[in-house]
Design a protein around this nucleic acid. Structure first.
Lengths: 223, 223, 223, 223
DNA sequence: CATGAATGAGTCTTCATTCAT
DNA sequence: AATGAATGAAGACTCATTCAT
């Protein structure tokens, strides 16, 4: 492992001192990697710095405390996710169903829906302390996305004349499904994949909004 | 504090030596309580035994290791949950929609859907190590419930002549919703309650199976 | 060193677990020893427990924190000192000059005026943090002794009809001399001994109260 | 904070590179300031350089090691003190009592008897290691002053025909009082001031040498 | 001369586990 | 069965020192 690290390091003629931002980024990525490998509780200053191929004291130099490193890591993931679904939303064509589909797809895009990243999210969900950090850092983003989804649903409902569909309800159900399916991917990675997740959500939306969403094609394989 | 505990204990003429089962039960409940109070990482042998009003060494005596105590705690919750939805399922009248509704309701019944218990579940989800324990202990139960739900959905679909509804799909979506909504209850306890959860699921089922499930009445209250 | 420790330990058939008080005492004495050997800053949990022949974690078990161990050590010395001069004072005959002389002598009695103990006192004087502890723990004792000395001086002055001698002044000067001479003993142990200290004070008192204190006999030896 | 410092610094067109001596002086003064603020143990290379508004590496450049910086700081104070009482001694009129009084006064002159400087002295007294430095650097000066005082006392005794007063004794007692009163000023700054110290010593000398020293006037204020 | 990122040995503290009583 | 003192490995954090720029 040491060898790997050193090789990786020496590969690109590593500057002995790098800019603050570069080092921070490097350490945050090492943190994600370490959480994926050893879990949140199993992640120590040593596992992180070894992963990064840097010295132990450097974390304290750049992040002061471990707690802070973890929060910055969460913030990084949260912002990445935020950017990702916002970009997807904006790039989608103007139709509200396209925009809603884009948000859904963003949650299960390989960039975001990586096991190592989900591990970090659920690591934070698991500890009361870190749940507090989560709320502090992510609550606003969660709310923003929920509101956006509500609006899109409202537009779809208006357009399609769907009776008896409550936009807020759908939006919250979608949020629940994102979390629930991520958890399934985390716990049963072999039995449940991101494709399964997207399929289920596609079907859910198709059943609510048949004029706007197509049913996914039947699959042979056991889902 | 120790004194208080002991006094409280001796108030009721405590048996100095209790049966194995009683002690085990007592320690498992103290573990749940401790995880609720201090989080999984904050739960130590000391917090557990102090919570139980017992001595430190006893845990070792009854459970050998901490890891084992935690697994037994998870097993206890898993079995409680298992029993609970099975009983609910059996007690419900014969109609499949009643039985399905009973399973849903079981997940959000106050006995099961307590914050302190959800904390334990998600504590286990958060750590790779404990996820392994989870799979070992709970995978079968999860599968059993999924199969049961699939069968019930199939019956409902047959009865109602619902076209284009895939029973497996619905069952897995339900499973995802249980987990996703539990997480919401854990993270946003003030904004999202078990009543919200039940409502969303009720609406979901009503939209799929309008002849079998009624829409929930509109509420005034936010959320 | 390990051997020494173990030998010392096994010498008296050491009980593996001792009463709380015994262990605390043992650790406090080891702390004094360690401060004498390595200084206050050089005293670590390791030096203390190695000195005591006990395991590292035990200090935290009995004293929670290092800070607390140090404070308890200071308190121990302060109380020992307090008891010592109070006993000396009480045992002396009724004449106020005898009582005052007893207090002086107590400060330079071999039990109290040991280099290793003085090292601890001055270790505490040297650090702002520990000076705060000192004030918290010792200020009252200092004040009590000062008041006592003032009263004794007042009696001596009244008896001897000494004009122009201010009792408070003498008492504070004595306090200054205790501290100043202790420091000399600490810094120049070869050049300045407790006998020198007692001699100087004896002369000081004899010059103020010639009817009550005899001049010390002239010495040949330098210093 | 760094910025502030730099701004403040650059306000006066700071020479980017200063002469060795200027930098050394700057760092020594920052060391004294830091010890006063954070204590000897709390003084790190960082606190010193931050105080000086200079970069971390500079200390190493000018003083090689921290130990050396501290010793140089002590040497600086020792020399300052040395110069000060020597100048006072020389400037005083020819009478030995005037010269002795000048030395006493020098110890409690505001330039010397500052709390921040006394903190440094006692910081050094508190640690065995630094006591060694102290002896190395200051023993000669202490001896020189002692001898000088002995000689002055001898002259005063001869002049006044004081019987039974041992000059060496008086000189050592004075030395003890300087240290003892400094300690009082350090520990009980509100209760004991440099004025109290000077008063006590004045009284001491007046009681020994009534023809040469006047009693201080009685004060109303407590202490 | 000067900077400040980087290193890593050394500290305090925590805590699962052991074991004499 | 039960107790709780004792152990010691492991973790977070500090900080003097180094060195590329």
């Amino acid at each position: 492992m040491n060898d790997v690290t050193k090789t990786a390091k020496s590969a690109g003629k590593p500057p002995r001192t790098a800019s603050k931002e570069v080092r921070r980024q490097q350490l945050i990525e090492a943190t994600i990697e370490s959480i994926a490998k050893h879990g949140l509780a199993g992640t120590t200053m040593t596992t992180v710095t070894r992963e990064a191929g840097l010295s132990l004291g450097l974390v304290n130099f750049h992040f002061s405390t471990k707690q802070n490193l973890l929060e910055e890591t969460l913030r990084y993931l949260a912002e990445e996710h935020h950017q990702f679904w916002k970009k997807s939303y904006e790039k989608a064509n103007l139709a509200p169903e396209a925009k809603l589909a884009a948000i859904v797809a963003a949650h299960f895009h390989p960039t975001i829906c990586k096991r190592k990243k989900i591990t970090v999210w659920y690591g934070f969900f698991g500890e009361s302390k870190s749940r507090a950090s989560y709320r502090k850092l992510v609550a606003d983003i969660d709310a923003e996305r929920l509101n956006l989804s509500v609006r899109l649903c409202r537009d779809i409902i208006a357009e399609g004349g769907y009776e008896n569909v409550d936009p807020e309800n759908v939006a919250m159900t979608l949020e629940g499904l994102y979390d629930g399916f991520w958890l399934n991917i985390l716990i049963y990675p072999k039995e449940f994949t991101r494709f399964d997740a997207m399929r289920r959500i596609q079907e859910y939306l198709a059943s609510l909004f048949p004029k706007h969403f197509e049913r996914p094609p039947p699959t042979d394989c056991k889902g």
